[in-house]
């Protein structure tokens, strides 16, 4: 049984635009994603496609003006606001992107200690710092004093000390040098091998492919395909969705062909398939109704032409 299931999740915001008008912005629409213990699922999509909001929705920490619908299940149990609150930091941990997510006026050691739920916080924090090769002096530092690598390891230690079963890492790799990046990715593999479930939210498909078990391709606020990592091979024949194929072929080591056009803005989504305006296979039927998620060959896809 999957440890975490997200079904039909939609998130929208009410926003004032110029003058007196107010409009509804749909940032995530009918999104499906499942996460198994011991596996790494990489959610891959372009920057600014609302991926972080998926993480915030799972944790129940979206801003107040967000309208959310759909269900999120943890261990088969449907979550609501209060169960989400009790799981945060205990069962589900977030690893954020940067030091902006640390309190600027609090020593980092103390911040890691606040994540410890049982036992001696100081001991746990020092043990984790040792394990991640952080010097003990780091615990007395303030976030602005941390180097990139130190910051990332500090953020990681908050998740380790919490003993969470599900770890959601939001863009953990950008701006890191290759060595630190490799180390970071290995840390995630370690988590999964120890029985945790890891959701890796990233725009970096290449590094995701090196460690993930499954890849969820995210486009304009929804997952268009969930495929095992082995399918990303050759010319992308094994992939199911035209966008995944195009994304794969756009990589430098493959054909390096960019996808024409750009992702639609959340306030101006097309009515039918979200990818239809840029799709070479699109037929008039594609623009009528958003296709449902269907299971094909051990993966999931949202395309009526998929095989």
């Amino acid at each position: 049984m999957p440890i975490l299931e997200v079904e039909n999740l939609s998130i929208s915001f009410n926003q004032y635009t110029a003058g007196l008008r107010r409009k509804n912005i749909q940032v995530i629409s009918s999104l499906h994603v499942t996460l198994e213990a011991g596996e790494i699922l990489a959610v891959v999509g372009a920057s600014g496609s609302g991926k972080s909001l998926l993480a915030h929705a799972i944790l129940g920490i979206l801003p107040d003006n967000a309208l959310v619908s759909g269900t999120i299940k943890y261990n088969g149990e449907v979550l609501n606001a209060s169960t989400q609150a009790s799981l945060r930091g205990k069962e589900i941990a977030l690893i954020p992107q940067s030091t902006n997510y640390l309190d600027p006026l609090m020593r980092v050691g103390n911040q890691v200690r606040t994540s410890v739920k049982t036992g001696d916080a100081t001991v746990a924090q020092r043990a984790v710092f040792k394990r991640l090769h952080l010097q003990q002096s780091v615990e007395k530092m303030y976030p602005f004093q941390l180097s990139g690598g130190m910051a990332r390891r500090t953020l990681l230690s908050t998740a380790i000390v919490s003993d969470a079963k599900v770890i959601i890492a939001d863009e953990p790799t950008p701006g890191l040098d290759p060595v630190v990046m490799k180390e970071a990715l290995n840390n995630f593999r370690e988590f999964a091998d120890n029985g945790c479930a890891v959701m890796l939210i990233t725009h970096d498909i290449e590094s995701a492919l090196t460690i993930a078990d499954k890849i969820a391709v995210f486009y304009a606020g929804t997952t268009v395909e969930v495929a095992p990592v082995e399918d990303f091979t050759g010319n992308g024949e094994s992939l199911r969705h035209p966008y995944s194929k195009a994304l794969w072929r756009a990589l430098p080591q493959n054909d390096f062909i960019p996808i024409p056009g750009s992702q639609p803005h959340p306030s101006a989504l097309p009515t039918g398939c979200l990818f239809a305006p840029r799709c070479t296979m699109a037929t008039p039927a594609c623009s009528e109704k958003q296709p449902d998620m269907q299971n094909i060959r051990d993966g999931m896809v949202r395309c009526m032409h998929a095989t």
Binding site: S10, K23, S29, L67
Partner: peptide, 10 residues
């Protein structure tokens, strides 16, 4: 779901 939201807004 999306449809519902639009109705409410109107």
């Amino acid at each position: 779901m999306i449809q519902n939201l639009h109705v409410r807004k109107k």
